[in-house]
Computed example of a mutant assay.
Amino acid sequence: MISSALKPAVTRLINPLARAALRVGLTPNSVTILGALGLIISAAYFYSKEEYFVGTLVITVFALSDLFDGAMARISDKGATAWGGFLDSTIDRVTDSAIVISLALPLIRDEDLLAYPAVVALVTGVLIPYIRAKAESFNIACSVGITERTERLVIILVAAGFHGLGVPYILAIGIWTLAVLGLVTVFQRLQVVRKGLADS
């Protein structure tokens, strides 16, 4: 997975910045909330106006805050907290949905058939983490899947950004890829839960 492969390098890069943020008085939770607000507002504003390239650049900057809050929590005196982890996970669902919804609304407005796979991508994006959380409540490990959150985010932002540069069909490719991979991942996780419950 992209996220797993790049994690050590990314951690080395952002840890000094995370320490600097802690020194100026920021907390991991405040970074989580501010980053989420910035992302949601940016997605709603730029994508609704179909300014896809600039919007994607701004959204990416705010999306990177998700890296900082985790790093800040790990190296802070208090360390990672259960509330911080819950807040971060919940807000991830909101921000991911905000991006897809903001892309889908102009498609719906224009009666573009691409709106349908966009809705599938939205629903599967919510189902994937829900299934994992529900599985873990049954003590079933369920982190399997063809795509993790990082991959899904990269797919949709790259597609939207290049669409803004005028690359033909790239938004359709991105949305359809997200929808199909989301369905596959949902199916994979359902199979894991089904097997785990059958064996229990």
Rank of each mutant, 00 (worst) to 15 (best):
L67N: 06
F62H: 04
P129M: 05
S102D: 13
N29V: 07
T177H: 01
D66G: 01
V154R: 08
S65F: 13
S42E: 12
D110C: 05
G38H: 04
V126K: 12
G164K: 00
A172P: 01
A36Q: 06
A118F: 07
D112C: 06
D69Y: 05
I128D: 14
L103R: 03
R74A: 09
P168H: 04
I40K: 05
L153A: 14
L113Q: 11
A80H: 08
H163W: 00
T177G: 02
A73F: 13
L57F: 08
L87H: 11
D112F: 07
V144P: 03
H163L: 00
M72D: 13
G174A: 01
D69Q: 05
A159W: 00
L157W: 01
S137G: 07
L157R: 02
A36Y: 06
Y45R: 06
F62Y: 03
G145L: 09
T90S: 15
P129Q: 10
S97M: 12
E50G: 00
I99F: 11
A43D: 13
N139I: 05
G38E: 13
L105R: 04
I75G: 06
D77G: 04
G125I: 01
R149K: 11
I75Q: 12
A36W: 10
T177Q: 06
L103S: 02
A63N: 10
E51Y: 02
K49T: 09
I175G: 02
T150Q: 14
I101N: 12
T56P: 08
K78Y: 07
F162D: 10
F86T: 12
G125P: 02
V158Y: 10
I75P: 15
V120R: 07
Y169E: 15
F138Q: 09
Y47T: 02
W83Q: 14
L87K: 09
S89F: 10
I170W: 09
L153C: 11
G85M: 11
L122R: 02
T56Q: 14
A121H: 04
G145H: 10
